Amino acid sequence: MPKSRIRKKDDYTPQSAKQQTTAIKLNSGRSWIAPLMLAMFLIGLAWIVLFYVTSGDMPIASIDNWNIVVGFGFIAAGFVVSTQWK
């Protein structure tokens, strides 16, 4: 059976230094996202901890166990905000 030809790849030649230096813009203008995300996480955590420490009297006594849902809502909002972080 005949043997197939071996193709030789071109040797690697690096690009010139002029083409390699490109300006990368790191500042996206969204510097408010990380602090907001962390604030939402901390507010949600503090809400739930406060509810348990005060035996349901605080933060809002009239909504009873829905305080846990409110706390997790803040945490979920923090995750939603985190999707915009670059």
Rank of each mutant, 00 (worst) to 15 (best):
P59C: 03
M40N: 05
A61C: 09
V53W: 10
T54W: 01
D64E: 15
S28I: 06
A34I: 12
V53Q: 04
S28E: 15
A39F: 12
R7Q: 13
T21I: 11
G29W: 05
N67M: 08
D11H: 07
A46W: 09
M37Q: 14
I33D: 02
M37V: 12
S28P: 01
S16T: 12
W47I: 01
P59E: 04
L45V: 10
K3A: 05
T13R: 03
M1G: 15
I43R: 04
V80K: 05
T83S: 12
S55C: 02
T13K: 04
L26N: 13
F41G: 06
G78V: 03
L42S: 04
D57V: 03
L38Q: 09
V80R: 03
K8H: 12
F72T: 10
K25F: 03
T22M: 05
M40H: 08
D11R: 10
I68M: 07
N65I: 12
G29A: 00
L38F: 13
F79G: 15
I60W: 11
I48R: 07
F72D: 00
P59H: 02
G44T: 00
P2D: 11
K25H: 10
F74D: 01
K3D: 12
F74Q: 02
P59M: 01
A76F: 14
Q84G: 13
A39R: 00
S4N: 11
M58R: 13
A61W: 10
G56P: 00
V70R: 00
I33A: 06
F41E: 08
V80P: 04
I43C: 00
A34D: 10
K25M: 06
F51G: 06
R30V: 01
W66C: 05
K25A: 07
G29F: 03
S31G: 15
M1E: 14
I33K: 06
T22C: 08
A61E: 14
R5A: 15
L26S: 10
A34W: 02
A23N: 09
F41I: 05
S31Y: 06
D57M: 05
L26A: 07
M58E: 09
I68R: 01
W66N: 11
A34G: 05
L38D: 04
L38M: 12
T21H: 02
P59A: 02
K18V: 08
W47Y: 06
T13L: 03
W85Q: 15
S62K: 11
A77W: 09
M1W: 08
F79W: 13
R30M: 11
I68C: 01
I75M: 15
Q20Y: 02
V80C: 09
Q15K: 14
T21V: 13
D10G: 02
M58T: 09
V53M: 05
N27T: 03
I48E: 03
K9H: 08
K86E: 14
V81P: 06
Q20W: 06
I60Q: 04
Q15E: 13
R30H: 14
N27D: 15
A46E: 06
M37H: 03
Y12Q: 05
R5T: 08
L50K: 07
